[in-house]
Amino acid sequence: MAESITLTSVRKEFGDTVAMSDVSLTIEPGETLGIVGPSGCGKTTTLRTVAGFETPSQGRVLFGEDDVTTVPPEQRDVGLVFQSYALFENMTVRENVEFGLKMRDVPADERHARATRLLQMLDIGTMADRDPATLSGGQQQRVGLARALAIEPRVLLLDEPMTGLDAQLKTRLQEEIGSLLDSIDVTSLYVTHDQSEAMVMCDRIAVMNEGSLEQVGSPDELYERPANDFVAQFIGTANRLSGDATGTTLSVAGAEFTTTRDLPDGNVTVIARPEAFSLGDGPVNAEIVEQHYLGGHVRATAETDSGEELVLEIDPPSMPTTSSIQLDIDTTRLHVLSHER
């Protein structure tokens, strides 16, 4: 049932500003694709282009096989969920959910039945006749989601839907809505600046920066094999080290390691996640300069003898008593960027 959504070489300019340059992206049927990136990277413009509120300067937007590039938003059948909920305050929760169906002249009984089913599915069945303003943030966001899903949209667009919620509620809602999106057959586009939220909610993630796509892939691909420095820094914590490689010998952080794979000779950039380092005996000498206790681990910043700064995550019981430490590096967990950028 669900359709794919395709952007082909979409470019969008606002005056002299290029918001999207040559973005080509396919969301597979039923998939939840996340777009992450810093503010101003073009992720919201991408969402608005799919919704029809922006018309691309170049390129096309396809829903399945249909070219919808010039179709106005009200005829695209897209469901929108916003950070600010944007609920209609003059209507009850039920009226909000039924609004789209009413616009489609769905008979009253069917509207009622569908709204009831959706509200129950989202666990707010008892609030149908309430005024949306009297609900909590999490409940309002569920109403927003129910309203968007009621029209059985060809694509569900979520624009930072959880940004305004407190951390605990966010975690719960992420899991709930994530499994809801998995269980229903709808193609979704999920825009957020929060990479960890995207990793929970999305099947694949597109990382955007300055109007272009940097990499599209599953959460583990992005984390373990980032295409470039930007992706490495944006997804998770990354230590960016520069090293020299000859065959299977990698010289990095003032020490030499033997790798299992052949490396491109010469100067390389290595991405080392905190878990690539282990404390204890090892060839890398470093000095802890800062530390924060975070419960599950201690986040420590250390400076190597070669002058590079490392972010480490250390198990609290194995936290050393002195600031001088020795580190070993698990070379299988290092990612060598193919080209220096």
Partner: peptide, 17 residues
């Protein structure tokens, strides 16, 4: 006090002119 742009966009995406 209303998020006019988003309210308007929600309504239009739901099929209202």
């Amino acid at each position: 006090s209303m998020d006019l742009r988003r309210i308007e966009e929600s309504a239009r995406s739901l099929g209202a002119s």
